[in-house]
Design a protein around this nucleic acid. Structure first.
Lengths: 232, 232
DNA sequence: TGAGCGATTTGACAATTATCAATCGTAGAT
DNA sequence: ATCTACGATTGATAATTGTCAAATCGCTCA
């Protein structure tokens, strides 16, 4: 594994505090691979053989049932995914596919569980990571159950705007069909939802969004840190 | 704290493996209290001062936004809730209220975090617990995003039947308005959903459910362990 | 026993969301 | 530059779900 990758991974909260020898041991069994876009990295239901880390590119976590499919989340560099399945040695609950050319690290789950047993700092970091993940899903659940699709879109745009620096203009960071799926609606419905936000000053031009009057949109969206603030 | 409570708590996976002295320390700061029904134990947004344990009774975890409210989960003895908020020292994401007369243990969050820092077995148990919680929410999310309300109800009934021992007859374990909220629908809609399952052999008499032909209902519900099996 | 209360059910209707088909627009290939 | 493929949009329609009001059921308690 290239040194730069090695260092990137080491800086992740999850690995930052663990003993050198344990980190080295983990990396020894790991391998890095470049995948093209649209490759299915893991399939739900399969045993969790590897903990994955996205170094570059992006990965879609999705799930299917009865011929329907939904995007659960997007993983961007640098972060891990499938940690809970790895730790529990349980089957994956979600599938994962690359959205673009991506650089992925694979760490054998067995190694992760082994080091987890002997490195207390690592175990503690895992707690923090899992607690964070758990709270994120709870927020997503609240978003889904308490809001209409129009409200979800409005709040998504506000979050995205903030994430992009807060300017009136910003770009959507993925294609609309996937955004629709993440927000729990159909692409057609998303298209109409964008129209439905026009009265609140939202302009859409392809992937470029303009929010003319933040306050106006916020009055409609009623963003709430207990749903929309992903940092806490 | 009575000895029997003390022992009950000690048998929880979360506390079973920790050092005696640490468990004793935790219990020293804890207190047990009996609450009547319909008492709001915690409110979302507030700092997480206590880890809660339900010894008897039951607790509803719910959340509100913009005058809407939804039930997220029900906690039954003996288990903890609000672990993630306690560990992260972050505000509660959900409120909690007793559904009936309940016996609750309150452990100061500060104590939990303190012991977490020094007791590695406790830290490991927390990892397992959080991973379990995380996976449960992911399953709930898939249930919500991939299924219609009729399908959610059908699968809920199948789970409930299994949980009740597998007989053709069983009782719903909470009132219908709350079931509706848990399943993400209105009480009116739930009432109609029960009707909608009649063709599949579901009979409803108050809180008593009869499933005449399991196979028939399963053909419609298409239960899936990656959504419906709460044990993995 | 029966009044009173709240939960549930029903009916009528409205809002939301999904589906299907057709068209548009654009980026990449030839 | 034109063609092609695919995602995005639009229109028409259907299915799903929610809302409101009224009726019904079941239970508690005087």
């Amino acid at each position: 594994m290239p040194d730069s990758d090695y260092r990137d991974i080491r800086t992740l909260d999850l690995f930052a505090e663990m003993a050198d020898e344990h980190f080295t041991a983990l990396m020894r069994g790991a391998y890095v691979q470049n995948f093209p876009a649209q490759i299915e990295l893991i399939t739900e239901g399969e045993p969790s053989d590897f903990l994955h880390i996205v170094l570059a590119g992006s990965v879609d976590l999705f799930s299917a049932w009865n011929d329907r499919e939904t995007s659960m989340a997007t993983v961007r560099p640098i972060s891990t995914f499938i940690l809970a399945a790895t730790i529990k040695d349980a089957p994956y609950l979600m599938s994962a596919r690359t959205l673009e050319k991506s650089r992925i690290v694979l760490i054998p789950s067995q190694d992760v569980r082994g080091i987890f047993d002997v490195d207390n700092n690592f175990a503690r970091a895992i707690v923090t990571e899992l607690a964070q993940c758990y709270r994120s899903v709870i927020k997503a659940q609240k978003d889904l159950k308490l809001r209409t699709s129009l409200e979800r879109l409005a709040n998504y745009l506000i979050r995205q705007q903030h994430h992009a620096g807060g300017g009136a203009e910003f770009k959507l960071d993925f294609e609309k069909r996937r955004l629709a799926s993440v927000l729990g609606m159909t692409p057609e419905n998303l298209s109409r939802a964008f129209k439905g936000l026009q009265p609140y000053g939202v302009k859409v031009n392809g992937t470029l969004i303009t929010i003319e009057d933040q306050a106006d949109l916020r009055r409609f969206a009623k963003p709430n840190p207990l749903i929309d603030d992903f940092s806490t």
